[in-house]
Design a protein around this nucleic acid. Structure first.
Length: 593
RNA sequence: GGCCCAGUAGUUCAGUUGGUUUAGAACGCCAGCCUGUCACGUUGGAGGUCGAGGGUUCGAAUCCCUUCUGGGUCGCCA
């Protein structure tokens, strides 16, 4: 094995060679994708970060030829040779470099490789655990490399845009204090302070607010965050947020700046156009029309409230639901009567029950007239009124759900809408339907804790006109909070914060914090707020999710270089692992299992 | 914590009514031949504690129990 650069200097990247390079003397370095040994002539496909090109070794160069006979997959080699145009009949149109090849003059093996456990190529079907164990090989695959490169472009676009707009990147501590509320913390024992623990940040929330008090005015950070909860395809225990905060802003300022940011990111990283401003829905509208706070707007099928008409029918299920304070909602599946057979409609009814509904009524508006098990309960007038309300046209299929629990109807119907969207192929993967959801409730009642908890977090500002309701009816207070939704997935969320220490104390009061507890957990924030806090607000994005969605991936694991498994383990390093007793002693810890 | 799916050569899988099986195939790997391949071809070869442990049985990859691992999902994720 020769020293690097002893004989060959790298002059080009494999994937960039074109017909215009024909005749030039090049030095290439990379990995062997494949060797095709025809006996009297050997072809090597050489791969580097940029792509693949073919190297030809003729027997005239006996030294190189002997070396080429030894070469195996994933050997690291250096090649010196001349770029030549391939004879017409030997062009490979499948690769960008397929018109040319390197006539090898010198070949050096820089390093050997064991046979990889799986082929380094796209479209492999290999168990993810094998890929994770050999992540360094998995990342060599073009598709994975492309995800990493894409993510890098997203990060660069973020930094370029925010720097251009006066934002300052500030790092905040990873070792911080545990706070109540929210997810389970990852704890780090302190050696110097026996019995005390740091927590890894769930988000830099408090620090970024303090930075506003500090006069930074515009902050951002691509921040690693930690939550010790169970994993999912779109959830890892450590993940990355694009976190930002601005002073002297209201909701619309944050939203409009972020629309420009997202437009810039998508255009720079993907080269795709994005129209702004995005659509907006209030939380209430979203729930009433789509049954969720993160509607997928790639398709319509909005829910329609028909409680008033339904209550006047003789159909007991409808009438009773409304009478007992519930609602009846319908969805018009356009041309559904042509798409769904009677048997498939029955399957939809089954699906509705699976989703938690007591049942599902339907009306099929066939060219011959109304066909429906519930038609007999409606007078002709009421049926017509219902059809008009549902905007029903011939061949449309209308479905209805009713319950005394209005929220249950909304959520079940919302899930049914998603099921229909999926079944009917309406969720186009390449669509980008951004949406702001605004005016979230400030609080929600926790049955488990028998008290109000913050829906977003305890520092979210109520809407000015709702502040009086804090005392009267906390459940009705709306917040200056907003979520950004993409294709039915929550991309990020934020709010205008409370900047008055008295309002903040009031908020803790409503949340049932004693004064001592508020002081001990958040005293530093309350104290900071007493020293001239500017009005401020911000937003945080799940960056892994953003990359996943923009790249059309099914899991954030595919855009994280070294992700963890569902058991929160790293199959490559074996983390987490036991430690030496000495380390535990230093930390004053005793393991009890 | 609950539910569901999957663990058999390096990889992807077949084999599961318990016994003609010495557990097969493809790709990969190794060796020979081959001067225009690019899924090279061709001839031959090696390679397995059937995830682990226990049980039932004359006999277990196959049935039962426990457990581990990977994935999905509900709970959880301010």
């Amino acid at each position: 094995m020769a020293k690097l650069n002893e004989k060959i200097k790298r002059t080009h990247y494999c994937g960039q060679l074109r017909e215009s390079d024909v005749g030039s003397e090049v030095g290439l370095m990379g990995w062997i994708q494949t060797r095709r040994d025809l006996g009297g002539i050997i072809f090597l496909d050489l791969r580097d970060r940029s792509g693949i090109c073919q190297v030809v070794i003729n027997p005239e160069h006996s030294e190189a030829f002997e070396i080429a006979e030894e070469i195996r997959s994933e050997y690291v080699v250096a090649v010196k040779g001349k770029v030549a145009l391939r004879p017409e009949e030997n062009v490979n149109p499948k690769i960008p470099t397929g018109f040319v090849e390197i006539i090898c003059e010198q070949l050096v093996i820089l390093n050997k490789s064991k046979t990889p456990p799986f082929p380094i190529e796209d479209n492999i079907n290999v168990d993810e655990s094998v890929r994770l164990k050999y992540r360094y090989l998995d990342l060599r695959r073009p598709r994975m490399l492309n995800n990493i490169l894409f993510r890098n472009r997203v990060n660069k676009a973020i930094r370029d845009f925010l720097a251009e707009n006066g934002f300052i990147e500030v790092e905040t501590p990873m070792l911080t204090r545990s706070t109540p509320e929210g997810a389970r913390d990852y704890l780090v024992p302190s050696r110097v302070n026996p019995g005390s623990f740091y927590a890894l940040p769930q988000s830099p929330q408090l620090f970024k607010q303090i930075l506003m008090v500090a006069g930074i005015e515009r902050y951002y950070q691509i921040a690693r965050c930690f939550r010790d909860e169970d994993l999912r395809a779109d959830r890892q225990p450590e993940f990355t947020q694009l976190d930002m905060e601005m002073s002297f802003v209201e909701v619309d300022d944050v939203i409009s700046l972020n629309e420009k940011l997202i437009k810039y990111i998508v255009e720079q990283a993907s080269g795709r156009k994005v129209d702004i401003p995005f659509r907006r829905l209030t939380y209430k509208e979203a729930m009433e029309k789509y049954g969720t706070d993160k509607p997928d707007l790639r398709f319509g099928m909005e829910m329609v409230n028909v409680s008033d008409i339904a209550s006047q029918s003789d159909f007991k299920v409808f009438a009773d639901a409304v009478k007992d304070g519930g609602i009846v909602k319908g969805i018009n599946i356009q041309k559904g009567g042509q798409i769904f057979s009677r048997r498939q409609i029955d399957e939809l009814v089954e699906k509705a029950k699976e989703l938690g509904s007591k049942g599902m009524a339907w009306i099929n508006l066939t060219p011959e007239g109304v066909k429906s098990p519930i038609a007999k309960f409606f007078t002709e007038d009421k049926m017509n009124e219902l059809l008009v309300r549902m905007d029903a046209k011939t061949n449309d299929l209308l479905i209805f759900m009713a319950d005394t629990d209005a929220n249950k109807v909304l959520s079940t119907m919302g899930q049914m809408r998603l099921h229909l969207g999926k079944t009917l192929g309406l969720m186009k993967k390449d669509a980008l339907e951004f949406l702001w959801v605004t005016e979230f409730p400030l609080l929600e009642y926790s049955e488990e804790e028998k008290r109000f908890v913050a829906m977003h977090h305890p520092f979210t500002s109520p809407m000015d006109e709702d502040i009086p309701l804090l005392d009267q009816d906390p459940s009705r207070v709306r917040a200056k909070a907003y979520d950004i939704v993409l294709n039915g997935t929550e991309l990020g969320g934020g709010s205008i914060r409370i900047h008055s220490s008295s309002l903040q104390q009031k908020m803790f009061e409503v949340l049932g914090f004693t004064e001592e507890r508020a002081k001990s957990n958040f005293g530093f924030l309350l104290q900071a707020f007493e020293y001239g806090t500017p009005p401020h607000g911000g937003i945080a994005y799940g960056l892994d999710r953003m990359v996943m969605l923009l790249q059309g991936l099914d899991s954030i694991r595919d855009c994280i270089a070294f992700p963890k498994t569902q058991n929160a383990m790293c199959l490559m390093t074996g983390a987490p692992a036991e430690v030496e007793p000495r380390q535990l002693r230093d930390l004053h810890l005793k393991v009890t299992i």
